[in-house]
Write a protein that binds this DNA or RNA. Structure first.
Lengths: 212, 212
DNA sequence: GCCGCGATGTATCGGACCGATACATCGCAC
DNA sequence: GTGCGATGTATCGGTCCGATACATCGCGGC
C-alpha cells in the first residue's frame, strides 16, 4: 500500500522523504494517522532498488556554488521513473482482496483521479461487497449472540453497524455517480504527458450534504 | 493489543486457539476484520512463556479412557493464571497513546465491563481528544489545501470528517452516561470470584437510536 | 551576541501483526 | 467410499509501526 501511495505522489512532483510524509498525511489523513519513517525510508530504498524511483540532485534552481565547507549532506529528492509510472498503473488497475480493506480502499480511492472509470466502479463495488459482509456479520452477532455479550460490547457493535450502513450508502451514491457519467472522464494515467503538474479536472460530484 | 484481548477472553473461560479466534472475531468484529493465526499462535506462546496462561488438559468431563491408538494430538486448551489476571488488570487500567487509536480503543472498550468507571472515563475522554484532533486536521486540509487536491481526495476527507464528527457525538453520549451514574457499577475485575460465568449485569444505557 | 527550542530532515532497530501456506482430523452428503 | 467443508494447529516472509538517535536551520527572548 505504501508503495502505491509513494508512487502516486511522486507522479505529481519529485519530493524528499519529509515532504512525502507530509503530503501522505494530508492525502490519507482520513484513513490512517501518519505514516511512520520506519516504513517510509525502507520502502523508498526498496523502490529505488527496484528501479521505480531515483534520487534527483537537489537545488536545480539557481546555480549557486556551494562552498563545500558545510559538506551539504542535506535532503535527498526522489523522482519517479518511467518504469515506476508503469508499475503504478499496474498496481492501481489490479484489485485483489487487500484492495477492499480499510487502508487499501482508502489509498486506491485517493488516487481515483488517476484511475479509469471501469476500475473505479470495480473497486467501489468490491468495497461495498466487503462492507456489506461486515455489516451482516455485525447484525448476526447483535441478533444471535446478543445475550452472550455485555452491554459495552454490544454498544461497540451497534456503533460499528451504524458506520457500515453509512458507508454503504456513501458508496451507493458514488457508484450511481460514476454510472451516470457525471463522474469525471478518466485522465489518462500511464501515457506520457511530460509537463502537466497538478491540475486535476475531475469533480466526482457527490452533492454536498447539507444536513438540517 | 492482542495480548490484552486474549487475556480478557480467557478470563471468561478456557479456550483453544480456534475458539479464541472466533470469540475474538465476534467481540471485535466492529473494529478489525479477523485476527490472523500468524499473530494468534505466536502470541499464545509468548503469553505462556511469560506465565500469564497455561495449557489445560482436554476433555476433563467424563473419565473416558482414550485408547492412545489415535495419539490424540488434538486441541490445546489455554487457561489464564492468577498472574495473567493481574497482568490483565494492569493492562486494562493504564492508558497510553496507543489506547486511543482505532484498534487500541476498540479493544479497551470491548472490555469496559471489566474496567472501573474512572478508567472508563479517562479512556473515553482520551479517545475524544484524539478524534477531535483528527477532525481538526481534516478540517484544515479541507479548508486551506482544498485547491491542491483533486475532487476524489476531497470526498474521502469529507467522509472521514463526517465519521469523526459522528464518533465525537457518540463519545459525548457515552461520557455523559458514565458521569450521570446510569452506567453500570464496575464489576470487580481482578478479585477472585471463582465461579461466575458470563452474566454481565452492566447496561451502558446509550439510548437506542430510533432513526426516523 | 548567543542560547535554546521547535521545525525540518535522514536513518535504524526490534517488535507486532498479516497473508499465504501446509497439514491433519472429523462428520456428512452424495 | 469418497470427496469436501469445517475444525484445528502451526510456520514463514514481509509490511508497517514506535522508539530512538542525530544533525541543521531560523527565530525569539534574554
Amino acid at each position: 500500500m505504501l508503495e502505491l501511495a509513494i508512487l502516486g505522489l511522486l507522479q505529481e512532483s519529485p519530493m524528499h522523504g519529509y515532504e512525502l510524509r507530509k503530503e501522505l498525511t494530508a492525502k490519507l489523513g482520513a484513513i490512517r494517522a501518519a505514516i511512520s519513517y520506519g516504513s517510509l525510508y525502507p520502502t523508498l530504498r526498496r523502490l529505488q532498488a527496484a528501479g521505480w524511483i531515483t534520487e534527483a540532485a537537489e537545488t536545480p534552481a539557481t546555480a549557486e556554488e556551494v562552498p563545500a565547507l558545510t559538506s551539504r549532506r542535506g535532503r535527498v529528492v526522489y523522482k519517479i521513473t518511467a518504469e515506476g509510472k508503469e508499475r503504478f498503473a499496474q498496481l492501481i488497475a489490479q484489485a485483489g482482496p487487500e484492495t477492499y480493506d480499510d487502508t487499501g480502499f482508502g489509498v486506491h480511492f485517493a488516487f481515483f483521479a488517476r484511475t479509469d472509470r471501469a476500475t473505479r466502479l470495480r473497486i467501489l463495488e468490491g468495497r461495498r461487497r466487503t462492507i456489506e459482509e461486515r455489516r451482516e456479520g455485525l447484525r448476526d452477532v447483535l441478533g444471535r449472540a446478543a445475550e452472550r455479550l455485555d452491554a459495552y460490547t454490544l454498544e461497540l457493535q451497534r456503533h460499528g453497524l451504524d458506520a457500515c450502513e453509512r458507508e454503504v450508502r456513501w458508496l451507493e451514491e458514488l457508484i450511481a455517480n460514476e454510472r451516470s457519467g457525471r463522474a469525471p472522464a478518466a485522465p489518462q494515467p500511464g501515457t506520457a504527458d511530460g509537463r502537466r503538474d497538478n491540475n486535476n479536472p475531475p469533480p466526482p460530484g457527490t452533492s454536498r450534504k447539507e444536513r438540517p
